[in-house]
Nucleic acid binder design. Structure first.
Length: 685
DNA sequence: AACAGATTAAACAGGA
DNA sequence: TTCCTGTTTAATCTGT
């Protein structure tokens, strides 16, 4: 009985602690219920795990292993980058008011915690969709860059080794040399294939659109060692013979490398590097420039440099041999660090060092999270509502929101002007951002329900995000259902069409179908605002706006803290404007009808409930209950309590085949459905 | 602490 | 019989 749903359910593990993030991805793996083909992997880490190529047994690391290891490194780098970003917050430029300080504080914690400590759900709840998206993009961009860098270095290494072997091979039998060359070339080839595959995977996730040209663009050095720029050399020092003794020395450094040497290798690990992120491309193809926080150091990868060569010395762990020029260094590299047991062992140790550092970072992050929890999650300290409670100041422009990565960072950080399309985009969309600032990250947050987050605007703004990212939309089922219904020309949908809308609009709902479908049905039945209208062809669901508005009357006014915050955070004029903007957005299907929204009515509606889906602006015609279950009403669907009427003269208002074309607005009536235009997502499937 | 709302799970019924 | 749809109940969580 329940088995069916159990297999699909990802029990939104309340406040899933520890790193269960990955579980969300694999939890439903068996279920296979997802119609989305599982493309949208777990958000953050989303790295593809190419376990295809098996590990080789000869002590060398297979490309797959290297890739995996490098992915870990890339993630680590991403975390490090966030740490750097966060640490930069305390730097000048931000110290004006308490409010702004607190405004950035949470993102700081978010930035510091999210990559590692938070489950995707938690991240989702804490971060606004643009922030999340930006975060994901950052990590993936980082990973891509790291991978690029890594592959490049691998190729260099291979070429170097090839050279070395060629030179050495002069004294060797030709056969052996040939075999080795062949092996190297094969490895090279394999790596290139892996590289392509990986890039493809990343691109397939839709969050990162990477042009090949970009992929092969200038690369920066691997900032892996930035985690511990100074320690590593120390770790390697003093070991007479690298290799096994190195582990001991490492242990002495308190790193406690107890892990057994695995079959991964870490070649170049240039220390002290700058955040590698300079450019990356957003899902919509808009390039975003993140100003690097630090200037690139001297070993920025240039054609004439080598990742293991910097400041005139060999950067091989524990080596530091002085080399006057690159040629000498390469010579040194080929002689001293050729592919042998010792070098391999050093690589292993290096890898363990990195792993250990990662573990340490995890611990420290955990501690930090606890601290943050202690400091931030306390409701006792009333937080001034610092950030503008803004449904986009210039809300009239439903600028399709392109989430700039910079948006994910609080003000004062590298915050380049966002793309032209989103200048008015709120830094933190009302939905998640603002609410999340007030409290921690409860597992199930329906923040948008709360106050200032009209589902329509949130949806419009983050439409692409929700469609592609496997994050739970912060809306209640009721508001989503309503939205789905209101988006249609006829303001009515069959159950199946509602399902389709959910899956079309939200990647999240492409899995756990049993769960949320049940919830949808439950909500349809439960809430009086959803009216079932039966006709010849079946039953459709409509929205009784009046009932919907009644549903939770005093949300906004009933939340004194919110109102207080709003008032404290904004001047009344701003508040009014913002509120009107919110109102305007919240009634998005009617948005362009100017009569709908006049300042007077908007402000007069202010004490009314401003619900998630908002739309309190819809000044419903007073003929509410009298309206028959019109089936093609261009008006608002609030046919009240007209359940059974077959509604004879029904036109063919069914938008189309249930699972058919993703565009329900094909029949597009000439109504004021401007959002349809604003939601180009309809074009996608 | 109480309460209301939301979510999830589940049982059940009716119809195709 | 199976699946879909719809209703209902209950447990749990969350925010006020």
């Amino acid at each position: 009985m329940m088995v069916e749903s159990a297999s699909e359910t990802i029990r939104s593990a309340p406040s899933g602690q520890n790193g269960v993030g990955s579980l969300s991805g694999q939890a439903d793996g068996g279920g296979g219920s997802s119609s989305g083909g599982g493309a949208a992997g777990p958000a953050a880490g989303g790295a593809v795990r190419d376990s295809a190529v098996g590990a080789d047994s000869n002590g060398e690391m297979s490309p797959a292993e290297l890739l995996h290891f490098q992915q870990q490194q890339a993630l680590q780098v991403a975390r490090q980058f966030l740490l750097q970003q966060a640490s930069g917050l305390s730097s000048p430029g931000n110290n004006d008011s308490k409010q702004s300080a607190s405004a950035v504080q949470v993102p700081v914690s978010v930035a510091m915690m999210s990559p590692q400590m938070l489950t995707p759900q938690q991240m989702q709840q804490i971060l606004s969709p643009p922030q999340l998206q930006a975060l994901l993009q950052q990590q993936q961009a980082l990973m891509i860059q790291q991978l690029q860098e890594y592959y490049k270095k691998q190729q260099e290494q291979l070429h170097l080794q090839l050279l070395t072997q060629q030179q050495a091979g002069k004294q060797q039998p030709k056969e052996a040399l040939g075999n080795k060359q062949l092996a190297f070339q094969q490895q090279l080839l394999q790596m290139q294939q892996l590289q392509q595959q990986h890039l493809l995977n990343l691109q397939r996730q839709g969050l990162v659109s990477l042009q090949p040209s970009q992929a092969s663009g200038p690369l920066q050095t691997l900032p892996q060692a930035a985690v511990c720029p100074t320690d590593l050399p120390q770790l390697w020092k003093g070991e007479g013979a690298p290799g096994q003794p190195a582990e001991d020395s490492v242990k002495q450094e308190g790193l406690d490398l107890t892990g057994t040497a695995t079959t991964a290798t870490s070649f170049a690990a240039p220390p002290k590097v700058s955040p590698p992120l300079s450019h990356h491309t957003l899902p919509n193809g808009q390039p975003t420039v993140l100003t690097p926080r630090r200037d690139s150091s001297s070993h920025e990868e240039t054609p004439g440099s080598h990742p293991l060569y910097g400041h005139g010395e060999c950067k091989w762990p524990g080596c530091e041999t002085l080399c006057e020029d690159l040629g000498q260094f390469i010579k040194h590299l080929n002689t001293e660090h050729a592919l042998d047991d010792r070098s391999t062992a050093q690589c292993r140790v290096q890898m363990q060092v990195v792993q250990q550092l990662e573990i340490q970072l995890a611990k420290e992050s955990e501690r930090l999270q606890a601290m943050m929890t202690h400091l931030h999650m306390r409701p006792s300290e009333p937080k001034p509502f610092s950030q503008p409670l803004n449904p986009a100041p210039g809300s009239s422009s439903f600028s399709k929101v392109t989430v700039s990565a910079a948006d994910s960072f609080p003000d004062g950080l590298a915050h380049p002007p966002t793309s032209a399309a989103a200048p008015v985009t709120p830094l933190r969309p009302p939905g998640l951002g603002s609410a999340a600032l007030h409290s921690g990250g409860p597992a199930r947050r329906r923040s948008s329900d709360k106050f200032c987050s009209p589902i329509s605007s949130e949806l419009a703004q983050n439409h692409e995000f929700y469609k592609n990212a496997d994050v739970r939309p912060p809306f209640t089922y009721a508001s989503l259902i309503r939205q789905a219904i209101l988006e249609t020309p006829d303001r009515q949908l069959t159950l199946n069409e509602i399902y389709n809308w959910f899956t079309r609009m939200f990647a999240y709902f492409r899995r756990n179908t049993a769960t949320w479908k049940n919830a949808v049905r439950h909500n349809l039945s439960l809430h009086k605002c959803f009216v079932r209208v039966e006709n010849v062809k079946g039953a459709v669901w409509t929205v009784d706006e009046r009932e919907y508005q009644k549903r939770r009357p005093p949300k906004m006014t009933g939340s004194p803290t919110l109102v207080k915050n709003m008032i404290s955070g904004l001047s009344y004029g701003a508040l009014n404007a913002s509120y009107q903007a919110a109102l305007a957005e919240s009634s998005f299907p009617l948005l362009n009808s100017p009569g709908m929204l006049n300042p007077g009515s908007a402000s007069s509606l202010l004490p009314l409930g401003h619900d998630d889906a908002g739309a309190p602006v819809e000044p419903l015609p007073s003929n509410g209950s009298s309206s028959p279950p019109r089936l093609s009403p261009p008006q608002y669907s609030h046919q009240v309590q007209v359940k059974e009427e077959p509604a004879e003269a029904e036109e063919d208002r069914r938008p189309g085949p249930p699972l058919g074309p993703p565009n329900p607005s094909t029949v597009g009536p000439p109504e004021d459905r401007d959002l349809e235009e604003e939601l180009p997502g309809e074009e996608l499937s």
